[in-house]
Design a protein around this nucleic acid. Structure first.
Lengths: 335, 335
DNA sequence: CATCGTCATGCATACGTATGCATTACAGCG
DNA sequence: CGCTGTAATGCATACGTATGCATGACGATG
């Protein structure tokens, strides 16, 4: 009934089991890791498995990693936002990645976001053998990102193109086309686009998509750039256009919501006075999300595909440079 | 200008540097890891550092971990919700943990949430030496959690008590006292409390806090339990009480927001007809958050303290069983 | 009876680092 | 000159696993 070990048995090791059973460590290791290239008597196998169970043996993951040259750990690094209660995007991305890794017997490790640590230290950590591959959310302007694209670490970019590495993104360009056409079909003649700067590749793609669709429809574009998520000036710009806009596409959902709040304050009726569209489809549908008309990107599919590609890279296979995941219109009450 | 290595130099190792410099691996290791117990000639140090720089040496984290018996990786596991765009709570907790780890030169690894993997596999992974310690969000009803509290892995619980391990929580009990008193001071005679089940320890504490405060004020309590976040029945219960309630505390912010939506639909004016209070203070203040009156818990402080305690545990020190972090009233427009 | 193939297991090593102990060289001192 | 102390470095090992190669036993076959 009681354990015949003394005090703290420290770690239970394959060698420990071998000693108890008067077998060699290699036999124990082979049986417990289920190596198919060798054969063992049924009796030995039973004995080993029973003893392992009894002693509570767990193979030491670090030793396995050192021996096998792989850790089964995937890193994730965002060079843009930071994860907190307000960042619905990162929450969705990281959550999806985590579940996907879990399903494949892998682990997700968060690499430091933002620049609390120096780029050099961060780069060193990424290449220190702790992770087998990296999912990256960043852009070309970033020195660390550029350095990574030249390194030997397998990396796949998500939600943004990075030269020199495969990327998986939602259809930012096409999505804006859907948005513009959705509004045009409802008879809106003057459709604007608001954003808070072109730093992200996604934003640039969405702007391009907007401009292309507008040109395609023979409509005059109205780009409105304001400080990050400042809605009041945006609304002012919308209303004070040569001829006030009747509809506006926001570069993402949060921007759209902030604008909606400003509309309430300014007594602008949505969608009667102004139709509003978002982009991302990440908002909690139990709350405000169901009301917002938006373009739903399918982020779990993006991360799923990104991990697929990363695994191919880690296996040494070639991968397509760019993978684009379809988006769809989610019709709410605001447009 | 160009590297004198052939093809792929594989990994640059301390032994590799030693060979180039006709030194021993131990000297290289000692210099590069800055061991203070030994002395080296200034010249040797320069040579080694220069060569390491030139060859792009990065110590192999896995080998270090094996040798030193510690990985500098902290695990996080939530046995309740899953991380996605809707889960503001986990996003905040995980984000705070990550930044705090980063500041201490540690890494945060996400252990599989929910039950996609079997408890047994999960337990094995947790004890496989991959992490030095674990921050846990779970409760006593969970077999895996109970097993962990008996294991040799240092664990600290956050946002919920678990018997057998230290816990760091926000003041759920006292917070509800603040909420009730806030409402009572504004003259509300009939204050209710809505929740979606007592599974979480936090919910139970908040209920206790509510009941205690009500008793203290000599008011009659009204507990309303509905299916998780079903607001319509909750509102019905509120309105159909013997005498309709004038104020209600919701067990968290999301519940409160859903209730607010139901109020709009049912034409109930907030706060005139019904005052509403939330709990957590995690909602995006750029959006709806600033309007909701709520009890702000300071989650970054909770996770910070939890990591402190975990580090003490990992160092073999004793720790207090329970640490409670103060909360405060955030006055919005709903109560 | 000698040879050979197969089965079951053991021996030895490598992954890359950190570190206790040994060694060399040399200066200071009596 | 011999002894001792210290500075600078090397040697050997351990962390725990996986795996190539070798070994012994035994039955089958010529």
């Amino acid at each position: 009934m009681h354990d015949d070990e003394t005090a703290h048995p420290d770690r239970v090791t394959s060698r420990g089991i071998a000693r108890k059973l008067r077998l060699s460590q290699s036999t124990v290791s082979r049986v417990l890791s289920g190596s198919k290239d060798y054969q063992y008597s049924e009796e030995t196998r039973k004995r080993i498995q029973a003893k392992a169970e009894q002693m509570g043996y767990r193979p030491h993951a670090v030793a396995q990693s050192l021996r096998q040259g792989r850790t089964r750990v995937i890193g994730f690094c965002s060079r843009h936002g930071r994860l907190d209660a307000r960042n619905v995007f990162l929450a969705e991305i990281i959550g999806s990645l985590q579940r996907d890794c879990s399903d494949h017997g892998e682990f997700l490790m968060l690499q430091s976001f933002a620049a609390e640590t120096s780029d050099d230290v961060e780069y060193g950590e990424l290449l220190s053998g702790r992770i087998d591959g990296l999912i990256l959310h960043g852009n070309d302007d970033d020195p660390l990102v550029r350095r990574l694209s030249g390194s030997s670490l397998p990396v796949v970019a998500v939600a943004g193109r990075v030269t020199g590495m495969p990327a998986v993104l939602c259809d930012d360009f096409g999505g804006m086309g859907l948005a513009v056409r959705h509004l045009a079909e409802r008879g809106h003649p003057r459709i604007g686009f608001t954003h808070g700067g072109r730093r992200l590749a996604s934003v640039r793609d969405r702007i391009e998509g907007y401009l292309a669709a507008m040109a395609d429809l023979g409509l005059e574009p109205h780009l409105i750039e304001v400080e990050y998520e400042e809605a009041t000036p945006a609304l002012a710009a919308i209303r004070s256009a040569t001829c006030p806009l009747t509809a506006v596409c926001c570069w993402n959902d949060v921007t759209a919501l902030v604008l909606l709040e400003a509309c309430v304050t300014a007594n602008v009726l949505v969608p009667a006075d102004l139709a509003v569209m978002g982009f991302d489809g990440l908002l909690d549908t139990r709350l405000v999300g169901q009301h917002l008309t938006t373009i739903s990107a399918h982020w779990p599919e993006v991360t799923h595909r990104a991990l697929d590609l990363l695994r191919m890279r880690m296996g040494g296979y070639e991968t397509p440079d760019e993978t684009i995941i379809d988006v769809s219109v989610h019709v709410g009450l605001t447009a």
